[in-house]
Computed example of a mutant assay.
Amino acid sequence: MLTRFAPSPTGFLHRGHAFSALTAFRAAQSAGGRFLLRIEDIDATRCRPEYEAAILEDLAWLGLEWETLVRRQSDHLADYHADIEALRERGLVYRCFKTRKEIDIGRAPHEPAIPYVGAPLPADEETQRLARGEAFAWRLSLAAASAALGGFEDLTFVEQGAGPDGETGVIQALPETAGDIVLARKDVGVAYHLAVVHDDALQSVTHVIRGHDLFEAAHIQRLLQALLGLPTPTYLHHGLLVGPDGKRYAKRDKAQTLRELRAAGVTADDLRAELGF
């Protein structure tokens, strides 16, 4: 068994991160396997070196040990762009010039986003827009992907944990629920979905252990694995910790961080006991 914890250095870690990291670490430890740490810092607009340093400090405080070679995604952008180029050569991605605002026209703020499905522009129009220097994103074409694979019926993955609605066992992948996802764009570079399937395969990750808020991501990641000829790991999604207010811990809600807990006198033993470890 080879598991990993793969945080993004966009803020300080909180209890929810600690629970997920400990779950992946203990799973590998119990099976006599290996545990990796990976820094997913492809979003240059939000990631900060100070947060990366704090991740290492917090995880060491928790008592986790990981293999010393820590993969930092920002050091390997060329690898991910090579994947996009391979998909482009097969006609599986296209340039999309629409902004998120244009896609959401007509959608009320309280309504969920509708998965976007588009198509390549006519060659002459695309050439003109490129000549004007207009920004674009590379989107994965579900239509082209379905044609390449003969449909999505054979796409499945094994869930050893549970999704948000209790989904477990052999799961039929439904990548169409995500629409034509963005694989890369200028402002944030390569998208999470592409980088994570590339790295999980490269690092021989056997079990992806993470919160069930990422369960839906497994559907589109399974499609990318099939298109890129990559192995599919076993998935184990776990429940999310919630605070006294019933809301899950999240960076954006300024959840109490591990650094703040430590400053308040909470020990690593205290926190591990609180979290059930």
Rank of each mutant, 00 (worst) to 15 (best):
A268K: 14
F157P: 06
A268M: 04
G151F: 00
G106C: 06
Q128A: 15
K254L: 09
F277V: 13
E153Q: 13
A144K: 06
G33M: 09
L37C: 02
V266W: 13
A123M: 06
C47G: 07
A31P: 06
I209H: 09
A268H: 10
D213E: 11
L77A: 03
G16P: 09
A144Q: 10
V190W: 01
G33Y: 10
A44R: 15
L223P: 03
L87S: 00
L223T: 12
V242F: 05
H238T: 13
K186Q: 12
R129P: 07
T232N: 14
R72W: 04
Y51F: 15
S146K: 06
H219I: 07
L230P: 02
A264D: 15
R15Q: 15
M1I: 15
S30R: 15
T267K: 11
G211N: 12
C47L: 09
R71P: 13
A143R: 05
P122D: 09
H207I: 04
V266R: 11
A21L: 08
D75T: 14
A53H: 05
S20Q: 14
G16E: 03
D245G: 13
R259T: 15
V208L: 04
A135G: 06
R72V: 14
T99L: 03
Y51T: 01
V170E: 10
R88E: 13
L224I: 03
D165L: 13
R71M: 01
A27R: 14
R100C: 13
Q225Y: 07
L271W: 05
V266G: 05
T168R: 09
D200A: 00
H76Y: 08
D200F: 01
D200S: 05
R139L: 04
I105P: 02
R38C: 04
E65P: 09
T45E: 15
G151S: 05
R88W: 12
A162C: 03
R132F: 02
R262P: 09
R72Y: 12
K98I: 10
T23K: 14
L202R: 14
G239R: 01
R132D: 15
W138V: 00
A113L: 10
L275Y: 07
S141F: 02
H212N: 15
A268Q: 11
F5I: 05
T156H: 12
P244I: 01
Y94Q: 07
L2M: 13
S146I: 09
K101Y: 10
E159R: 01
L155E: 07
H238Y: 10
Q29I: 08
K251V: 04
R222W: 00
C96T: 05
E153W: 03
Y249V: 01
I42P: 11
A82H: 09
G118F: 04
A218S: 07
L36H: 11
L56D: 11
A173T: 00
A226I: 11
R71Y: 12
E216V: 13
P120V: 10
G33I: 06
Q221C: 04
P120K: 10
A143F: 00
Y192I: 08
G63M: 00
G151Q: 07
D165E: 14
G276M: 01
R129D: 08
G11C: 00
R210P: 02
R262H: 08
A53R: 13
I39A: 12
E52Q: 09
A255S: 15
A21D: 07
R132G: 12
E50V: 05
G91E: 00
L130H: 04
T3A: 11
Q160Y: 08
